[in-house]
Design a protein around this nucleic acid. Structure first.
Lengths: 320, 320
DNA sequence: TTGAAAGCGCTAACAG
DNA sequence: CTGTTAGCGCTTTCAA
């Protein structure tokens, strides 16, 4: 591969000059610039990232660790982020957590040799705090937590789950529902309770399941025994619940109303009212936050909370 | 950040020895190895990828360019591939093509400075042939085409679409269907025709649409006017067709049978019989092919064709 | 406006 | 078994 030395020779200038041209240093005589640029194009010169990284101690690379769950969003965000990075000449290094195959720690270790300028991840726990601290302090990698943010000391971008569940519940109440079942995580249950309270309804714990590994049959059983008029179900549980509804041959929204938290493809295909994450907003805020952190190494970490919103479709009926 | 020199000093050995230990060179006295390894762990040493890449003229990095369409598969494959790369200490650099934002060319240019050892992509056309040739010859990047393979000269891994459509058609015929509609791309239409012929049925062009940008209403119109007993629809068209069926209030499989080409999430949720790509197989073959090409730079490019398979669900009825 | 030269962290001869 | 050393391609200071 052709390098700066070759290019310099071909142009009859020094490597220093070539470097200046490639890096758009204005202190180069226009004619020289033209000459070098032309030769670079003709010879197909591409600067060697490794050499540059080594010299500058900066990789122009951002890493992202994708957890096995919540795939959907990550994927959609990925493309957007990469486009933003691209604009600034940055690269995107991706690492996955695969249940039973790779852990977050593996991903972190894999990433660390790349001397990332920033790292996007969704830490489930504080387990790798020490490692992250090392990345952050030793390698100067800016950490941005997304969706989940167990660490106080790093930047974060999370969705207001409380608000989302609150909205879903409020919407159902507004439509006349009183016996509303909630099947989801603990973190979002608060919004459910809160909306009930706000409407002067009592909270019935038997209408709530916080079990993450819930099975179809159990949900079906819960539905038959408790007889809710509406259900809010989150993420994977939404899928399980939907299957349960089909198994029970309950028609939505005639027999029962349904709201899914997380507007994924199948939810739309079934015309299910959903709480959605504004993905492009998330991605754009993420990109902004990322570069801000990179450009201002000493600024305190930014923390953003983004509100989800309800997409009204046809899975909720009005009860008089 | 701590480097080999620091580590060497801390252990009272030379950088060469440290390098040997880090690279698992067996020619190091066990005690020395232990000492270095312990210090490396204690001090949190991570080899600098940039320096190594520069020195070895190898990046231990594989790139993948993700086209805006056919997202689903890419995403599922991504995680798998990355796991394989990880096992060998390789990294995965990802670039996206975004309609109206980034072109394949942009992605290629972004990637080229990373000195990839291999590049996975789905070239739609031969447009960037020259650039790929440069990557391949100058940077020694091994090119692997996936799903589409317009270039003869590089390795490829494609799915036998002909076979998939053939199987779907055969399956429907076996179930007694005679008026089968096909809505999909030109490339897969052959299998449809072929299966009809094999069954002694005549090919009716009015039952076929090869329009990639088909609209729901047009499909609905086609269905009403032609009255097929079964439909095979591909990828995005499957979605459009499904919506059309719902709009027509046709019940599947009672009123009409349906097979989707590409087993994506929603297809499963609707319990639709589908032609599926064996994603884990694709990913594992891809990984194998990738490393084979990297490890054997002079071997001729491998070309693999993978057969899709039919997942029997409940969207096809038997006609007597 | 340009060039010479040092050095980023690592690997791999080569020498011992 | 271990150390010395050159050099990968680039940026940047200093000097001209």
């Amino acid at each position: 591969m052709i390098n700066m030395k070759d290019l310099a020779k071909a142009c009859g200038v020094s490597v220093a000059t070539v470097s200046r041209v490639i890096n758009a240093d204005p202190a180069v005589k226009p004619e020289t610039r033209e000459k070098v640029l032309a030769a670079a194009k003709r010879l197909g010169f591409t600067p060697n990232l490794a050499a540059r990284s080594l010299k500058l101690a900066k990789s122009r690379t951002v890493g992202i660790i994708i957890p096995s769950i919540s795939n959907q969003f990550y994927y959609e965000i990925l493309g957007y982020i990469e486009a933003e990075l691209n604009k600034r000449g940055y690269h995107l290094l991706v690492s996955f957590i695969q249940h039973g195959v790779t852990t977050e720690r593996d991903a972190l270790e894999a990433m660390s040799s790349a001397r990332l300028e920033a790292l996007i991840l969704s830490p489930r726990t504080c387990d790798n705090g020490e490692y992250l601290r090392m990345l952050s302090s030793q390698l100067n990698t800016k950490i941005v937590q997304i969706f989940t943010a167990p660490f106080e000391e790093y930047g974060s971008l999370v969705v207001d789950d409380f608000y989302g569940t609150y909205e879903a519940t409020r919407y159902l109440i507004e439509h006349g529902h009183r016996r509303i079942m909630y099947i989801g995580g603990d973190n979002r249950a608060g919004g459910y309770k809160s909306a009930l309270e706000a409407a002067g309804l009592s909270y019935d714990p038997s209408l709530v399941s916080l079990d993450w590994l819930l099975e179809e049959d159990i949900v079906a059983e819960m539905i038959t025994s408790k007889g809710p008029t509406a259900i809010i179900a989150v993420a994977r549980q939404a899928e399980v619940t939907w299957r349960a509804l089909r198994k029970l041959k309950l028609s939505v929204p005639d027999d029962i109303s349904f709201i899914a938290f997380d507007d994924v493809k199948w939810v739309g295909m079934f015309d299910i009212t959903a709480i959605a994450h504004p993905l492009t907003e998330i991605a754009s805020v993420l990109a902004k936050q990322l570069f801000y952190a990179i450009d201002n190494p000493d600024a305190p970490p930014e923390k953003t909370v983004i509100k989800p919103y309800l997409i009204e479709r046809s899975s909720v009926s009005k009860i008089k």
